[in-house]
Amino acid sequence: MDFPLVVKIKKIKQETPQTKSFVFEYPKRAKPGQFVNIWLPGVNERPMSISFDDGKNYTLAIAAAGESTRQMHALRVEDKIGIRGPYGTHYQWKDGQRIAMLPGGYGAGPTYWMATLATKCKIDFFLGARDKSLLLFADKIKKLKNVRFLPSTNDGSAGVKGFNVECWMQEMERGVKYDSVITIGPELMMYAVSKQCAKRKVPCQLSIERYMKCAFGICGNCCVDDLGITMCQQGPVVDNTLAGKIAEFGQYHRDDVGRKKEF
């Protein structure tokens, strides 16, 4: 049933100056890394990563970046939105693993969610942002018992000054060995992580987002070169071996008419 289900927003919270989280009840359960299509009647429909599923409610953390996300920020509690999904692949882990998490931007949502589920894993959480105010879900993340919280900011206003990828590499230089690396965020950040993981032979999972219309493997807008597989069904979460075979990863994506756009 790939029709939007209309739900009412239960709660809205300003998480950072740019990001609001929206909470609503939804009948289907999801896993970290999956996404839904959110429909604003008369405005647009677009995919959004699920930040949290508490078993009854979804949380979507949405940064106001373009026209449609600004419209979403204008929503109020009790407003109606359409949701379909969840769609796509999700992150995976095994009990006892030492995991490095490298989220960028909204990626803090799904990684935090996974950290709450992977209770028998030891997680180094490399949360990064431009400045302290943009560290999404920092308060929740640092409370988790299985997490070592290692924030970084570009301006040094919290944690280490610099990028989270550098922090993570420093930990590895110090001899920390990871069984798995989880990254989600801007593609060039993930590309850097992917290259490092391939070089160091560390298993890694990442989320390759492409412009999606149907989200159920029909329209073809999210097919990646040269494999030709859809990222709505065989992604967005892929392991690094598969990412290594996606020639366009870190190079280009396609717009709504299928034209290549370089990163």
Partner: peptide
């Protein structure tokens, strides 16, 4: 109209 935008996609359909 289905999966029809890129060469890679067409080849995957043939596969």
């Amino acid at each position: 109209g289905i999966l029809g935008i890129t060469a890679s996609s067409w080849r995957n359909v043939v596969k």
